[in-house]
């Protein structure tokens, strides 16, 4: 590769441009230019294919793209797309507690999402613990579970354990004067009504998805 002839002097520097260098240095610079160009091109191509919809290239070479992108260059920019979420999902939980006299009692349902929302209200900088934790844990759960709460792969069991841990953390080991032995989770979905100017009819009745009871790991509190 022949270096360009009309290289300007390096701004702010003492020595001249590439043209003023010795041959080995010029070769080194040429190799560096080529290396950077290739790396930039590969990176941008991989990122493009990663964010693009499934297409001819990704169906054939998707593994290659994934191998390059994951874990550190993963990205998702489908923000409110293709459609924004059009329902309010709340995650609720209740517990079965064992009292001192040996009897058990089931608590009422606690709207954990509503507690998060109460904290977000009039807060200029809501915490990730209130804004993302439960919301993303629940979408992780639903995306890794099929019909009848059947877990899909190892991620399914992971997401269940995660949701349970969040509930246990929020309830603590004791509730209503008893030790928490089992917890149960349900999710309520309330579609957002169509805008007043729209003539669309949307049923805004709340529906519930109730999960089975999960026994709490009681090793820690020793009860």
């Amino acid at each position: 590769m022949e270096p360009p002839e009309d290289v300007r002097a390096r701004p702010g520097g003492g020595s001249g441009g590439v043209g003023a260098l010795s041959l080995p240095s010029r070769i080194a610079v040429a190799l560096a230019v080529a290396a950077v160009a290739v790396m930039v091109a590969v990176h941008l191509l991989a990122v493009f294919l990663h964010v693009a919809p499934e297409n001819t290239i990704t169906t054939q070479h998707g593994d290659l793209v994934a191998e390059y992108i994951y874990p550190e260059f993963e990205q998702n920019w489908k923000l409110f797309a293709p459609n924004p979420v059009q329902q309010n999902i709340h995650v609720w939980a209740r517990a079965e507690v064992r009292k001192g006299d040996g009897s058990t009692e089931t608590t009422g349902w606690v709207d954990l999402t509503a507690m998060d929302i109460a904290d977000i209200r009039h807060n200029p900088a809501p915490s990730h613990t209130k804004q993302n934790e439960l919301r993303r844990a629940w979408s992780f759960y639903t995306s890794t579970h099929g019909d009848q709460n059947r877990p899909i792969g190892t991620r399914g069991e992971m997401s269940r354990a995660y949701v349970q841990r969040i509930v246990e953390t929020r309830f603590g080991p004791r509730l209503n004067g008893g030790a928490v032995e089992r917890v149960q989770v349900r999710a309520s979905t309330t579609p957002i009504a169509a805008p007043p100017w729209s003539n669309e009819k949307i049923n805004t009745a709340t529906s519930f998805q109730v999960l089975p009871w999960w026994p709490v790991d009681t090793k820690e509190d020793g009860s």
């Binding site: 409110f80 293709p82 459609n83 924004p84 999402t113 509503a114 957002i192 805008p195």
Partner: peptide, 25 residues
């Protein structure tokens, strides 16, 4: 990706996030 969504097409998309409880401080 937004262009593909019917809420962005019918011009009401913004309405919904503004009624999401956890995104309206």
């Amino acid at each position: 990706y937004k262009i593909q969504g019917n809420r962005w097409q019918d011009g009401t998309a913004l309405y919904y996030p503004l009624h999401l409880d956890d995104f309206s401080p």
